[in-house]
Design a protein around this nucleic acid. Structure first.
Length: 168
DNA sequence: GCCAACGTTGGC
DNA sequence: GCCAACGTTGGC
């Protein structure tokens, strides 16, 4: 098997629900609660019809920017790594949960999640306003008007540039 | 399949 | 808390 180039992502979390500090403490988490089909699809196994090497979904080893949304400040707080993808989101089976999904069965889950491991917490938040004013990041998806996807792809150059900013 | 009404996201 | 932009639902 040829080693494939890793892909980069941005994943949003409201720190009042799950923050980079929580992630750092736990070291590992299931990214549950995604209830948007486009975001879910990124966390599913690629359909077998896709040629291998086609980059449509996450793969173990991919890195992501941990983004604090609805926060003060809003911005990128650190980095995580994808460990496993295509896992049924357990919250869809919990009757008492707001995330309960009556249409789902164990045999046919509807919502999927990824297992993620902590990589690093930045020494400072790279704030949204800072991303916006960076001319190298004009194509970054999270900056696009109306972009609310909670899981989204990021280019390698954008990812590395944001890491550099975090260290400055 | 259309689309109005409603619910949610998330920056501000 | 406001509200623009989206996504989903459900009547027809």
């Amino acid at each position: 098997m040829v080693k494939e180039r890793i892909q980069y992502w941005l994943m949003k979390s409201e720190p009042s629900v799950y923050s980079i500090e929580d992630f750092k403490k736990e070291r590992k988490t299931l990214w549950t609660g995604v209830r948007n089909y486009q975001a879910r699809n990124f966390m599913m196994q690629p359909p077998s019809s896709l040629a291998s090497g086609e980059k449509a979904t996450m793969q173990p080893g991919d890195l992501f920017l941990f983004y604090h949304s609805n926060a003060d400040p809003t911005g990128v707080a650190g980095v995580g790594r994808i460990k496993q993808v295509g896992l049924p989101d357990p919250s869809q089976f919990e009757k008492s949960s707001e995330l309960f999904e009556p249409r789902a069965t164990k045999a046919k889950p509807i919502w999927f999640c990824a297992e993620c491991e902590f990589v690093e917490q930045f020494s400072r938040i790279v704030e949204l306003s800072e991303l916006r004013s960076d001319r190298k990041l004009t194509e970054l998806l999270v900056l696009k008007k109306g972009m609310r996807l909670s899981v989204q792809p990021v280019s390698q150059s954008h990812f590395k540039h944001i890491l550099t900013k975090a260290q400055s």
